[in-house]
């Protein structure tokens, strides 16, 4: 595979393949720190309002579909597993397995987004979407709107990250079918893996914060 050999070496401005890999890894971690701060803003807003309107938070959280949320959590954890297996396959140079695991991850990610859109559709139907048509039957309808504002902002931003991740994975799957990755060079797979796990972890925080308020 002449193409793969070319990739196994390094770009001209690096001194060695090791240096290139180090740089990519550090770059990815720095990027993830950035992402933490990006979501950090939303989490701060969440903390402020939850402590300001604890009652509304319990009420509004009850109206979310715990079943679908839990299923989605499971789906996403599975996808992290398949992603990790994909990275391992790349490490061992098992091309078919790599493609397979990537496709599995993509399918699970797609399933997550599918379920999420069902949940969104329910929210629309129940008029729980903030705005003039917002209706909430509960004692604290007004701050409940804040909860749903944050619900949509947080899960929406998360879903956007999922979509970007799916794009990355599709691209990787295509490239790995063409045999671009070898045990000597699979940095992109590894980096996409880091990103995917990060997005997964964000959800692991979102799920209890949004769905499990006041449920002990």
């Amino acid at each position: 595979m002449p193409e793969a050999r070319a990739m196994a070496s390094h770009l001209h401005h690096f001194d060695s393949a090791d240096q290139q890999k180090d740089a990519a890894t550090l770059g990815m971690w720095v990027f993830l720190i950035t992402e933490i701060l990006f979501f950090g803003g939303l989490f701060m807003a969440y903390v402020v309002y939850r402590s300001g309107y604890p009652g509304a938070w319990v009420e509004a959280s009850r109206s979310l579909d715990l079943r679908l949320g839990a299923i989605n959590t499971a789906v996403l954890i599975c996808s992290s597993l398949t992603m990790a297996l994909g990275v391992q396959a790349a490490q061992l140079g098992r091309r078919k397995a790599l493609v397979g695991w990537l496709v599995a991850t993509i399918l699970l990610g797609g399933a997550f987004l599918g379920i999420k859109s069902v949940e969104y559709a329910h929210k629309f139907a129940e008029h729980h979407v903030p705005g003039p048509s917002f209706v909430f039957h509960g004692a604290e309808a007004r701050p409940a709107q804040l909860f749903f504002s944050l619900y949509f902002a947080m899960t929406g931003m998360h879903a956007l990250h999922m979509v970007i991740g799916l794009g990355l994975l599709l691209n990787l799957a295509r490239q790995s079918r063409a045999g671009r990755f070898t045990p000597a060079y699979y940095t992109p797979v590894e980096m996409a893996g880091l990103y995917w796990h990060f997005v997964d972890i964000v959800w692991i925080f979102l799920f209890p914060l949004l769905y499990l308020v006041g449920r002990h």
Binding site: A45, Y53, A56, P130, P132, R142, L146, S149, A153
Partner: peptide
């Protein structure tokens, strides 16, 4: 999108 995170009329 009519979210209300900073909107005082909705408790923001």
């Amino acid at each position: 999108a009519n979210l209300g995170i900073f909107d005082p009329t909705r408790g923001g």
